[in-house]
Design a protein around this nucleic acid. Structure first.
Lengths: 228, 228
DNA sequence: TGATGAATGATTGTTGACAATCATCAAAGG
DNA sequence: CCTTTGATGATTGTCAACAATCATTCATCA
Protein backbone atom coordinates (compact mmCIF):
# COMPACT_ATOMS: atom_id res chain seq x y z
CA UNK A 1 0.00 0.00 0.00
CA UNK A 2 1.67 3.17 -1.15
CA UNK A 3 1.36 6.47 0.65
CA UNK A 4 -1.53 8.43 -0.76
CA UNK A 5 -2.70 11.92 -0.18
CA UNK A 6 -5.62 12.00 2.20
CA UNK A 7 -8.61 11.48 -0.03
CA UNK A 8 -11.28 10.61 2.42
CA UNK A 9 -13.85 13.33 2.83
CA UNK A 10 -15.45 13.65 6.20
CA UNK A 11 -19.16 13.84 5.77
CA UNK A 12 -20.87 15.81 8.44
CA UNK A 13 -24.50 16.04 9.26
CA UNK A 14 -26.25 19.37 9.08
CA UNK A 15 -26.51 19.32 12.84
CA UNK A 16 -22.75 18.99 13.17
CA UNK A 17 -22.18 21.77 10.66
CA UNK A 18 -24.58 23.98 12.53
CA UNK A 19 -22.90 23.18 15.83
CA UNK A 20 -19.54 24.08 14.30
CA UNK A 21 -20.82 27.43 13.10
CA UNK A 22 -22.39 28.27 16.40
CA UNK A 23 -19.33 27.15 18.32
CA UNK A 24 -17.12 29.34 16.16
CA UNK A 25 -19.43 32.31 16.62
CA UNK A 26 -19.43 31.89 20.38
CA UNK A 27 -15.69 31.35 20.62
CA UNK A 28 -15.12 34.41 18.45
CA UNK A 29 -17.22 36.48 20.78
CA UNK A 30 -19.81 37.27 18.11
CA UNK A 31 -22.42 35.81 20.38
CA UNK A 32 -21.46 37.24 23.74
CA UNK A 33 -22.16 35.41 27.01
CA UNK A 34 -25.82 35.61 27.96
CA UNK A 35 -27.06 36.10 24.39
CA UNK A 36 -30.47 34.66 23.84
CA UNK A 37 -30.58 31.93 21.21
CA UNK A 38 -33.94 31.33 19.55
CA UNK A 39 -34.34 28.10 17.64
CA UNK A 40 -36.53 29.49 14.86
CA UNK A 41 -34.29 32.50 14.29
CA UNK A 42 -31.17 30.34 14.16
CA UNK A 43 -32.90 27.91 11.83
CA UNK A 44 -33.65 30.80 9.50
CA UNK A 45 -30.13 32.23 9.63
CA UNK A 46 -28.25 28.97 9.32
CA UNK A 47 -30.64 27.40 6.85
CA UNK A 48 -31.73 24.25 8.59
CA UNK A 49 -34.83 23.14 10.35
CA UNK A 50 -35.51 23.62 14.03
CA UNK A 51 -34.89 19.99 14.89
CA UNK A 52 -31.45 20.18 13.37
CA UNK A 53 -30.61 23.38 15.22
CA UNK A 54 -31.90 21.79 18.36
CA UNK A 55 -29.46 18.89 18.01
CA UNK A 56 -26.63 21.36 17.47
CA UNK A 57 -27.60 23.33 20.56
CA UNK A 58 -27.71 20.12 22.58
CA UNK A 59 -24.17 19.35 21.50
CA UNK A 60 -23.01 22.79 22.60
CA UNK A 61 -24.91 22.39 25.84
CA UNK A 62 -22.91 19.33 26.79
CA UNK A 63 -19.76 21.36 26.13
CA UNK A 64 -21.20 24.00 28.44
CA UNK A 65 -21.10 26.78 25.90
CA UNK A 66 -24.86 27.24 25.96
CA UNK A 67 -27.51 26.65 28.58
CA UNK A 68 -31.16 25.72 28.24
CA UNK A 69 -34.03 26.56 30.56
CA UNK A 70 -37.03 24.35 29.96
CA UNK A 71 -39.75 25.66 27.71
CA UNK A 72 -38.16 29.02 27.83
CA UNK A 73 -34.88 29.81 26.17
CA UNK A 74 -31.45 28.80 25.02
CA UNK A 75 -28.65 31.22 25.84
CA UNK A 76 -24.92 31.48 25.52
CA UNK A 77 -23.43 30.49 28.86
CA UNK A 78 -22.20 33.20 31.19
CA UNK A 79 -18.80 33.44 32.81
CA UNK A 80 -18.46 34.53 36.39
CA UNK A 81 -15.39 34.34 38.59
CA UNK A 82 -16.49 31.03 40.09
CA UNK A 83 -16.92 29.40 36.68
CA UNK A 84 -13.58 30.80 35.57
CA UNK A 85 -11.91 29.17 38.54
CA UNK A 86 -13.74 25.92 37.82
CA UNK A 87 -12.62 25.88 34.20
CA UNK A 88 -9.00 26.44 35.10
CA UNK A 89 -8.93 23.90 37.91
CA UNK A 90 -10.57 21.27 35.70
CA UNK A 91 -7.97 21.97 33.06
CA UNK A 92 -5.26 21.73 35.69
CA UNK A 93 -6.70 18.44 36.92
CA UNK A 94 -6.76 16.89 33.46
CA UNK A 95 -3.31 18.10 32.49
CA UNK A 96 -1.97 16.99 35.81
CA UNK A 97 -3.36 13.49 35.35
CA UNK A 98 -2.07 13.32 31.79
CA UNK A 99 1.38 14.41 32.88
CA UNK A 100 1.41 11.77 35.61
CA UNK A 101 0.33 9.06 33.19
CA UNK A 102 2.84 10.11 30.59
CA UNK A 103 5.68 10.22 33.12
CA UNK A 104 4.83 6.77 34.43
CA UNK A 105 4.86 5.23 30.95
CA UNK A 106 7.22 7.52 29.10
CA UNK A 107 8.91 6.18 25.95
CA UNK A 108 11.84 7.45 23.92
CA UNK A 109 9.45 8.90 21.35
CA UNK A 110 7.65 10.77 24.11
CA UNK A 111 10.91 12.23 25.38
CA UNK A 112 11.79 13.37 21.89
CA UNK A 113 8.39 15.00 21.37
CA UNK A 114 8.38 16.76 24.72
CA UNK A 115 11.90 18.06 24.26
CA UNK A 116 11.00 19.33 20.81
CA UNK A 117 7.98 21.18 22.13
CA UNK A 118 10.25 22.66 24.76
CA UNK A 119 12.68 23.85 22.07
CA UNK A 120 9.82 25.51 20.17
CA UNK A 121 8.86 27.23 23.35
CA UNK A 122 12.41 28.48 23.75
CA UNK A 123 12.43 29.82 20.19
CA UNK A 124 9.12 31.55 20.74
CA UNK A 125 10.42 33.09 23.91
CA UNK A 126 13.36 34.67 22.14
CA UNK A 127 11.65 36.33 19.24
CA UNK A 128 8.04 35.80 18.58
CA UNK A 129 5.09 38.00 19.21
CA UNK A 130 2.39 37.35 21.77
CA UNK A 131 0.18 35.24 19.55
CA UNK A 132 2.96 32.84 18.61
CA UNK A 133 4.07 32.59 22.19
CA UNK A 134 0.57 31.64 23.17
CA UNK A 135 0.35 29.09 20.36
CA UNK A 136 3.59 27.41 21.40
CA UNK A 137 2.51 27.43 25.00
CA UNK A 138 -0.74 25.69 24.15
CA UNK A 139 1.09 23.30 21.82
CA UNK A 140 3.41 22.26 24.62
CA UNK A 141 0.53 21.45 26.91
CA UNK A 142 -1.36 19.71 24.10
CA UNK A 143 1.66 17.54 23.39
CA UNK A 144 1.63 16.17 26.91
CA UNK A 145 -2.06 15.36 26.82
CA UNK A 146 -1.96 13.88 23.32
CA UNK A 147 0.76 11.46 24.33
CA UNK A 148 -0.74 10.23 27.57
CA UNK A 149 -2.48 7.45 25.65
CA UNK A 150 -5.94 7.93 27.10
CA UNK A 151 -8.60 8.95 24.62
CA UNK A 152 -11.05 9.89 27.34
CA UNK A 153 -8.53 12.30 28.80
CA UNK A 154 -7.72 13.69 25.37
CA UNK A 155 -11.38 14.33 24.62
CA UNK A 156 -12.02 15.88 28.01
CA UNK A 157 -9.04 18.15 27.45
CA UNK A 158 -10.27 19.22 24.02
CA UNK A 159 -13.58 20.23 25.52
CA UNK A 160 -12.06 22.23 28.35
CA UNK A 161 -9.45 23.77 26.04
CA UNK A 162 -12.33 25.18 24.00
CA UNK A 163 -13.60 26.89 27.09
CA UNK A 164 -10.18 28.26 27.92
CA UNK A 165 -9.94 29.75 24.44
CA UNK A 166 -13.41 31.16 24.96
CA UNK A 167 -12.31 32.84 28.17
CA UNK A 168 -9.42 34.44 26.30
CA UNK A 169 -11.71 35.63 23.52
CA UNK A 170 -14.30 37.06 25.85
CA UNK A 171 -12.00 38.73 28.32
CA UNK A 172 -10.42 41.95 27.13
CA UNK A 173 -6.96 40.76 28.06
CA UNK A 174 -6.17 38.83 24.90
CA UNK A 175 -2.53 37.92 25.30
CA UNK A 176 -1.21 35.99 28.25
CA UNK A 177 1.14 37.52 30.74
CA UNK A 178 4.70 37.69 29.53
CA UNK A 179 6.12 35.06 31.79
CA UNK A 180 9.40 33.28 31.42
CA UNK A 181 8.03 30.36 29.43
CA UNK A 182 11.00 28.03 29.45
CA UNK A 183 11.88 28.58 33.06
CA UNK A 184 8.37 27.56 34.06
CA UNK A 185 8.00 24.65 31.69
CA UNK A 186 11.44 23.07 31.91
CA UNK A 187 10.93 21.45 35.32
CA UNK A 188 7.78 19.79 33.99
CA UNK A 189 9.57 18.43 30.92
CA UNK A 190 12.35 17.14 33.14
CA UNK A 191 9.96 15.42 35.52
CA UNK A 192 8.16 13.70 32.64
CA UNK A 193 11.35 12.64 30.91
CA UNK A 194 12.81 11.13 34.05
CA UNK A 195 9.55 9.35 34.79
CA UNK A 196 8.67 11.13 38.00
CA UNK A 197 4.87 10.96 38.04
CA UNK A 198 4.29 12.77 41.32
CA UNK A 199 6.51 15.68 40.36
CA UNK A 200 5.02 15.90 36.86
CA UNK A 201 1.49 15.98 38.26
CA UNK A 202 2.34 18.61 40.82
CA UNK A 203 4.16 20.84 38.34
CA UNK A 204 1.49 20.54 35.65
CA UNK A 205 -1.21 21.49 38.13
CA UNK A 206 0.75 24.45 39.45
CA UNK A 207 1.54 25.63 35.93
CA UNK A 208 -2.14 25.71 34.94
CA UNK A 209 -3.19 27.45 38.10
CA UNK A 210 -0.48 29.98 37.51
CA UNK A 211 -2.19 30.84 34.23
CA UNK A 212 -5.34 31.67 36.11
CA UNK A 213 -3.53 34.06 38.41
CA UNK A 214 -1.35 35.54 35.69
CA UNK A 215 -3.37 35.84 32.50
CA UNK A 216 -6.73 36.47 33.95
CA UNK A 217 -6.01 37.78 37.40
CA UNK A 218 -7.18 41.27 36.63
CA UNK A 219 -10.52 40.60 35.02
CA UNK A 220 -11.26 37.77 37.44
CA UNK A 221 -10.41 40.05 40.31
CA UNK A 222 -12.68 42.70 38.90
CA UNK A 223 -15.55 40.28 38.52
CA UNK A 224 -15.11 38.87 41.98
CA UNK A 225 -15.28 42.37 43.40
CA UNK A 226 -18.31 43.24 41.33
CA UNK A 227 -20.08 40.22 42.70
CA UNK A 228 -19.21 41.04 46.32
CA UNK B 1 -35.58 31.54 56.05
CA UNK B 2 -36.33 28.36 57.93
CA UNK B 3 -35.22 24.96 56.78
CA UNK B 4 -37.90 23.39 54.64
CA UNK B 5 -38.34 19.98 53.20
CA UNK B 6 -37.51 19.88 49.54
CA UNK B 7 -40.79 20.75 47.87
CA UNK B 8 -39.75 21.53 44.36
CA UNK B 9 -40.81 18.93 41.87
CA UNK B 10 -38.47 18.35 38.98
CA UNK B 11 -40.33 18.18 35.73
CA UNK B 12 -38.59 16.10 33.17
CA UNK B 13 -39.05 15.98 29.45
CA UNK B 14 -39.95 12.76 27.74
CA UNK B 15 -36.48 12.65 26.29
CA UNK B 16 -34.95 12.80 29.76
CA UNK B 17 -37.29 10.11 31.03
CA UNK B 18 -36.40 7.93 28.07
CA UNK B 19 -32.69 8.53 28.65
CA UNK B 20 -33.14 7.53 32.30
CA UNK B 21 -34.83 4.30 31.35
CA UNK B 22 -32.23 3.41 28.78
CA UNK B 23 -29.41 4.31 31.13
CA UNK B 24 -30.86 2.08 33.82
CA UNK B 25 -31.28 -0.77 31.38
CA UNK B 26 -27.70 -0.48 30.20
CA UNK B 27 -26.26 -0.13 33.70
CA UNK B 28 -28.29 -3.13 34.82
CA UNK B 29 -26.83 -5.18 32.02
CA UNK B 30 -30.21 -5.76 30.40
CA UNK B 31 -28.82 -4.26 27.24
CA UNK B 32 -25.39 -5.85 27.05
CA UNK B 33 -22.44 -4.09 25.40
CA UNK B 34 -22.69 -4.15 21.64
CA UNK B 35 -26.48 -4.46 21.57
CA UNK B 36 -28.00 -2.83 18.57
CA UNK B 37 -30.41 -0.02 19.38
CA UNK B 38 -32.98 0.79 16.71
CA UNK B 39 -34.78 4.10 17.05
CA UNK B 40 -38.16 2.91 15.79
CA UNK B 41 -38.13 -0.19 17.98
CA UNK B 42 -37.19 1.81 21.07
CA UNK B 43 -39.84 4.40 20.24
CA UNK B 44 -42.41 1.62 20.17
CA UNK B 45 -41.24 0.03 23.42
CA UNK B 46 -40.80 3.20 25.43
CA UNK B 47 -43.81 4.96 24.00
CA UNK B 48 -42.37 8.12 22.54
CA UNK B 49 -41.63 9.29 19.05
CA UNK B 50 -38.37 8.74 17.21
CA UNK B 51 -37.21 12.31 17.67
CA UNK B 52 -37.57 12.01 21.41
CA UNK B 53 -35.71 8.70 21.50
CA UNK B 54 -33.03 10.26 19.35
CA UNK B 55 -32.50 13.04 21.89
CA UNK B 56 -32.25 10.47 24.65
CA UNK B 57 -29.71 8.44 22.70
CA UNK B 58 -27.67 11.59 22.07
CA UNK B 59 -27.55 12.22 25.79
CA UNK B 60 -26.31 8.70 26.42
CA UNK B 61 -23.80 9.09 23.63
CA UNK B 62 -22.30 12.06 25.44
CA UNK B 63 -21.87 9.84 28.48
CA UNK B 64 -20.27 7.22 26.25
CA UNK B 65 -22.76 4.52 27.08
CA UNK B 66 -23.90 4.25 23.48
CA UNK B 67 -22.22 4.88 20.15
CA UNK B 68 -23.64 5.98 16.83
CA UNK B 69 -22.37 5.22 13.34
CA UNK B 70 -23.77 7.57 10.74
CA UNK B 71 -26.82 6.45 8.83
CA UNK B 72 -26.35 3.03 10.20
CA UNK B 73 -26.95 2.14 13.80
CA UNK B 74 -26.91 3.02 17.46
CA UNK B 75 -25.39 0.44 19.77
CA UNK B 76 -24.53 0.03 23.41
CA UNK B 77 -20.85 0.83 23.80
CA UNK B 78 -18.39 -2.01 24.12
CA UNK B 79 -15.80 -2.49 26.81
CA UNK B 80 -12.36 -3.71 25.92
CA UNK B 81 -9.28 -3.75 28.12
CA UNK B 82 -8.06 -0.44 26.70
CA UNK B 83 -11.33 1.32 27.46
CA UNK B 84 -11.37 -0.20 30.92
CA UNK B 85 -7.96 1.27 31.60
CA UNK B 86 -9.08 4.62 30.21
CA UNK B 87 -12.13 4.72 32.45
CA UNK B 88 -10.14 3.96 35.56
CA UNK B 89 -7.34 6.40 34.79
CA UNK B 90 -9.82 9.17 34.05
CA UNK B 91 -11.52 8.44 37.34
CA UNK B 92 -8.14 8.46 39.05
CA UNK B 93 -7.30 11.77 37.41
CA UNK B 94 -10.50 13.44 38.54
CA UNK B 95 -10.37 12.10 42.07
CA UNK B 96 -6.74 13.03 42.28
CA UNK B 97 -7.46 16.60 41.26
CA UNK B 98 -10.40 16.83 43.63
CA UNK B 99 -8.29 15.54 46.50
CA UNK B 100 -5.57 18.08 45.73
CA UNK B 101 -8.08 20.92 45.60
CA UNK B 102 -9.76 19.84 48.80
CA UNK B 103 -6.47 19.51 50.64
CA UNK B 104 -5.34 22.95 49.55
CA UNK B 105 -8.54 24.61 50.76
CA UNK B 106 -9.64 22.26 53.50
CA UNK B 107 -11.99 23.62 56.17
CA UNK B 108 -13.03 22.30 59.56
CA UNK B 109 -16.28 21.06 58.09
CA UNK B 110 -14.35 19.17 55.42
CA UNK B 111 -12.17 17.52 58.04
CA UNK B 112 -15.22 16.46 59.97
CA UNK B 113 -16.90 15.01 56.88
CA UNK B 114 -13.82 13.14 55.72
CA UNK B 115 -13.18 11.69 59.15
CA UNK B 116 -16.78 10.58 59.39
CA UNK B 117 -16.60 8.83 56.02
CA UNK B 118 -13.46 7.14 57.27
CA UNK B 119 -15.26 5.94 60.40
CA UNK B 120 -18.07 4.49 58.26
CA UNK B 121 -15.45 2.70 56.26
CA UNK B 122 -13.97 1.28 59.44
CA UNK B 123 -17.38 0.07 60.59
CA UNK B 124 -18.02 -1.52 57.21
CA UNK B 125 -14.70 -3.24 57.36
CA UNK B 126 -15.49 -4.88 60.68
CA UNK B 127 -18.86 -6.36 59.97
CA UNK B 128 -20.61 -5.60 56.76
CA UNK B 129 -21.13 -7.70 53.71
CA UNK B 130 -19.55 -7.04 50.35
CA UNK B 131 -22.24 -4.74 49.05
CA UNK B 132 -22.09 -2.45 52.07
CA UNK B 133 -18.34 -2.38 51.93
CA UNK B 134 -18.51 -1.29 48.34
CA UNK B 135 -21.13 1.35 49.15
CA UNK B 136 -19.01 2.84 51.94
CA UNK B 137 -15.96 2.76 49.72
CA UNK B 138 -17.75 4.68 46.98
CA UNK B 139 -19.25 7.05 49.56
CA UNK B 140 -15.80 7.89 50.86
CA UNK B 141 -14.54 8.77 47.42
CA UNK B 142 -17.71 10.68 46.60
CA UNK B 143 -17.31 12.74 49.75
CA UNK B 144 -13.93 13.97 48.63
CA UNK B 145 -15.17 14.96 45.19
CA UNK B 146 -18.38 16.56 46.48
CA UNK B 147 -16.42 18.79 48.81
CA UNK B 148 -13.80 20.00 46.37
CA UNK B 149 -16.04 22.93 45.46
CA UNK B 150 -15.82 22.57 41.69
CA UNK B 151 -19.07 21.77 39.95
CA UNK B 152 -17.35 20.84 36.70
CA UNK B 153 -15.26 18.27 38.55
CA UNK B 154 -18.30 16.96 40.37
CA UNK B 155 -20.23 16.53 37.13
CA UNK B 156 -17.31 14.89 35.37
CA UNK B 157 -16.99 12.50 38.30
CA UNK B 158 -20.68 11.61 38.22
CA UNK B 159 -20.38 10.71 34.56
CA UNK B 160 -17.31 8.54 35.00
CA UNK B 161 -18.73 6.96 38.16
CA UNK B 162 -21.65 5.76 36.06
CA UNK B 163 -19.23 4.01 33.78
CA UNK B 164 -17.41 2.45 36.71
CA UNK B 165 -20.69 1.07 38.00
CA UNK B 166 -21.37 -0.20 34.53
CA UNK B 167 -18.07 -2.04 34.47
CA UNK B 168 -18.98 -3.70 37.75
CA UNK B 169 -22.40 -4.68 36.44
CA UNK B 170 -21.10 -6.07 33.19
CA UNK B 171 -18.09 -7.94 34.52
CA UNK B 172 -18.87 -11.18 36.29
CA UNK B 173 -16.80 -10.18 39.30
CA UNK B 174 -19.42 -8.17 41.14
CA UNK B 175 -17.83 -7.49 44.49
CA UNK B 176 -14.51 -5.73 44.83
CA UNK B 177 -11.48 -7.48 46.22
CA UNK B 178 -11.50 -7.77 49.96
CA UNK B 179 -8.75 -5.29 50.67
CA UNK B 180 -7.95 -3.65 53.94
CA UNK B 181 -10.13 -0.60 53.39
CA UNK B 182 -9.03 1.61 56.25
CA UNK B 183 -5.36 0.89 55.88
CA UNK B 184 -5.54 2.03 52.27
CA UNK B 185 -7.74 5.04 52.79
CA UNK B 186 -6.33 6.43 56.03
CA UNK B 187 -3.20 7.97 54.49
CA UNK B 188 -5.40 9.83 52.00
CA UNK B 189 -7.66 11.19 54.74
CA UNK B 190 -4.59 12.27 56.69
CA UNK B 191 -3.05 14.03 53.71
CA UNK B 192 -6.27 15.93 53.01
CA UNK B 193 -6.83 16.90 56.63
CA UNK B 194 -3.31 18.23 57.04
CA UNK B 195 -3.60 20.14 53.76
CA UNK B 196 -0.92 18.29 51.83
CA UNK B 197 -2.12 18.64 48.23
CA UNK B 198 0.71 16.74 46.56
CA UNK B 199 0.38 13.76 48.85
CA UNK B 200 -3.42 13.74 48.59
CA UNK B 201 -3.24 13.78 44.79
CA UNK B 202 -0.68 11.02 44.66
CA UNK B 203 -2.53 8.81 47.12
CA UNK B 204 -5.93 9.33 45.48
CA UNK B 205 -4.51 8.42 42.10
CA UNK B 206 -2.78 5.33 43.41
CA UNK B 207 -5.90 4.24 45.26
CA UNK B 208 -8.03 4.36 42.12
CA UNK B 209 -5.48 2.58 40.03
CA UNK B 210 -5.28 -0.07 42.70
CA UNK B 211 -8.98 -0.74 42.13
CA UNK B 212 -8.25 -1.46 38.50
CA UNK B 213 -5.60 -4.02 39.37
CA UNK B 214 -7.54 -5.51 42.28
CA UNK B 215 -11.22 -5.64 41.41
CA UNK B 216 -10.97 -6.15 37.73
CA UNK B 217 -7.56 -7.62 37.25
CA UNK B 218 -8.88 -11.02 36.28
CA UNK B 219 -11.44 -10.12 33.69
CA UNK B 220 -9.28 -7.38 32.26
CA UNK B 221 -6.41 -9.80 32.05
CA UNK B 222 -8.65 -12.29 30.31
CA UNK B 223 -9.81 -9.73 27.80
CA UNK B 224 -6.33 -8.52 27.11
CA UNK B 225 -5.24 -12.09 26.38
CA UNK B 226 -8.27 -12.71 24.20
CA UNK B 227 -7.36 -9.71 22.11
CA UNK B 228 -3.74 -10.73 21.68
C1' DT C 1 -51.24 50.85 46.14
C1' DG C 2 -50.33 46.28 45.81
C1' DA C 3 -51.66 41.64 44.93
C1' DT C 4 -54.25 38.46 42.03
C1' DG C 5 -55.61 36.25 37.97
C1' DA C 6 -56.76 35.81 33.10
C1' DA C 7 -55.53 36.71 28.22
C1' DT C 8 -51.82 36.74 24.93
C1' DG C 9 -47.69 36.14 22.35
C1' DA C 10 -43.43 33.84 22.04
C1' DT C 11 -40.66 29.69 22.51
C1' DT C 12 -39.63 25.10 23.34
C1' DG C 13 -41.44 19.97 23.39
C1' DT C 14 -43.21 16.33 20.47
C1' DT C 15 -44.73 14.01 16.55
C1' DG C 16 -45.22 11.62 12.01
C1' DA C 17 -43.91 11.77 7.19
C1' DC C 18 -40.43 11.99 3.67
C1' DA C 19 -35.43 11.96 1.97
C1' DA C 20 -30.69 10.28 2.18
C1' DT C 21 -27.67 6.75 3.21
C1' DC C 22 -25.90 2.31 4.31
C1' DA C 23 -25.46 -2.98 4.69
C1' DT C 24 -26.76 -7.08 2.51
C1' DC C 25 -27.25 -10.23 -1.03
C1' DA C 26 -27.87 -12.15 -5.47
C1' DA C 27 -26.63 -12.10 -10.33
C1' DA C 28 -23.28 -11.26 -14.01
C1' DG C 29 -18.76 -11.39 -15.83
C1' DG C 30 -14.03 -12.71 -15.98
C1' DC D 1 -14.15 -19.48 -7.85
C1' DC D 2 -13.54 -14.70 -7.06
C1' DT D 3 -14.66 -9.91 -7.96
C1' DT D 4 -17.73 -6.46 -9.37
C1' DT D 5 -22.23 -4.49 -10.05
C1' DG D 6 -26.85 -3.45 -9.21
C1' DA D 7 -31.18 -3.96 -6.65
C1' DT D 8 -33.45 -4.08 -2.12
C1' DG D 9 -34.70 -3.46 2.59
C1' DA D 10 -33.60 -1.34 6.82
C1' DT D 11 -32.14 2.65 9.42
C1' DT D 12 -30.84 7.16 10.31
C1' DG D 13 -31.12 12.35 8.74
C1' DT D 14 -34.20 16.19 7.99
C1' DC D 15 -38.27 18.65 7.92
C1' DA D 16 -42.66 21.21 8.88
C1' DA D 17 -46.84 21.19 11.64
C1' DC D 18 -49.05 20.81 16.12
C1' DA D 19 -49.12 20.73 21.37
C1' DA D 20 -47.41 22.24 25.85
C1' DT D 21 -45.38 25.62 28.52
C1' DC D 22 -43.62 29.97 29.96
C1' DA D 23 -43.09 35.21 30.45
C1' DT D 24 -45.47 39.40 29.93
C1' DT D 25 -49.12 42.43 30.07
C1' DC D 26 -53.01 44.43 31.79
C1' DA D 27 -57.42 44.66 33.91
C1' DT D 28 -59.58 43.70 38.36
C1' DC D 29 -60.26 44.04 43.18
C1' DA D 30 -59.23 44.34 48.18
Amino acid sequence: MSARPQLKIVKKSLAELAAERLRAAILAGELPPGSRLVETALAEEIGASRGTIRAALSELERDRLVTCTRFSAWAVATLDAQRLWEIYTLRATIESGAARLLAERVTDDDVKAVREAERDLDAAERGAAGADRLACDLAFHATIVQRCGNRLLIDAYASIADQVRWVYAVSEQRSPARIDLVAWHAPLSDAICRGDGDAAASLAFALCMRSLDGDLGESAQKEAEAQA
